[in-house]
Design a protein around this nucleic acid. Sequence first.
DNA 1: CTTGTATAACTAGTATGGTAGTTGGGTTGG
DNA 2: CCAACCCAACTACCATACTAGTTATACAAG
Lengths: 247, 247
Amino acid sequence: MTPSLLALWDEQPEGNVRQRLHEVLRQSIIRMTLAPGQALSEKEIADTFTVSRQPVREAFIRLSEAGLVEVRPQRGTYVVPISHAAVMEARFVREALEVAVARSAAEQGLDASVLDELHDLIARQKRCIDSDAHDRFYRLDEDFHRTLALGAGHDAAWRVTQEVKAQLDRVRYLSVPDTTPIAKLIDQHGAILAGVAAGDADAAERAVKAHLREILRSLPDLIARFPELFDIASTRPTLSAAQGVTA
Amino acid sequence: MTPSLLALWDEQPEGNVRQRLHEVLRQSIIRMTLAPGQALSEKEIADTFTVSRQPVREAFIRLSEAGLVEVRPQRGTYVVPISHAAVMEARFVREALEVAVARSAAEQGLDASVLDELHDLIARQKRCIDSDAHDRFYRLDEDFHRTLALGAGHDAAWRVTQEVKAQLDRVRYLSVPDTTPIAKLIDQHGAILAGVAAGDADAAERAVKAHLREILRSLPDLIARFPELFDIASTRPTLSAAQGVTA
DNA sequence: CTTGTATAACTAGTATGGTAGTTGGGTTGG
DNA sequence: CCAACCCAACTACCATACTAGTTATACAAG
């Protein structure tokens, strides 16, 4: 584990130790380098990166807010198992946001430069079909969704999307390279862009929904194939669950 | 400032110092006890609550992620001004989520107990109309939206909604008690509930949108009345803005 | 009076120390 | 053999110390 963590560490240029650590750990959890259920020790991580425990702790807190780790006081910090319920909820939130973004983009129109960039991204994605460049495709996939959101001026929506997407990316990483073929995903990107470019909000919405529902096709199969990575319970016990109502 | 902060502190029962501090500061910012632009000193806050700087710092980090404060390294931490763009974006995200939640609730149906609770909440809201119990109404308002979201099983959506709602609540707190009369808001709650209960997703969506667009009516007036609380620039300079695209 | 510089007083970021609590394993009494 | 207990080795949380960077001010040089 250590070597690949350190590799990510070196390629994180931005800013302070906390942010770099957060990004390294986040990526490692998404990529399953840190497996669900694994215990993360403040001290061990701190020693690995030759930093103090404090920024590690702060990174843990942020990860726990994204639902990627669970901090149990005086016990330990653990990578949370993939939860079916959490994935479904993340997908729900993401669909709500991206549908709204696509509709907004279709209705208000996008700058020509943004449309060009989106077309360009799809073209570059197509070059990944045969070359088995999955990692490259995934980055371009994220670029497509981000460019659309930011191009429509909805950067808060994108920020939230990015947070919940972590839950989904963990699943997507499992389904490499089978399940849904890349070509199909690229076609769906094309459909989204076509709807947006044509100013047809309804078509854009349908395209986004079709795209984001692909994960539903692969999920049951993945749970069957990797049961040890998933939470057995259908509903995950969340600390931030329903609270009492004002008396 | 100090006394009212400490009052909030004492009524935060839950858990650790960091969470209590976060909630106290968050509420204080929403309620304008901590005014936009005000500098927050780690040391000063720590001394006020007789805790160390560390949990204060961690609370600041969380607040900065919600866009309520800005941490400028080696400089200071400041309550961010209300930004027109940030409010519009928060409203956009909230509408996207709550529309999706309401549609989901209408389509899948809610338990009778949840419907009862929603009706009860509306009834209790009506009792606030004449008594000028604005604070009480606002709590019941939040209860209504939370109960709907959690009742439909979308607690992740609610968690995100709650985060972005802070930006909107700051504005709403300014508009007490004029602008939109409480009675109108309660009617809108009733319309949402009616749509959901009838299983009419389209009606529920229309009702949610009408409800959440009330803020748009009051915002220009508030900017004119309290220009010193708002960011002058139309677009706020966000650190997490657009990044380059994969080369 | 203006300007450049040194400096003192702040800041956040990081490191380290201390405390209370949990856990698991070994030991002791039955 | 088994149960109860104890203790050592962890944990996260909080407090404190230290570092590095920013800013405003005072002061000296022109």
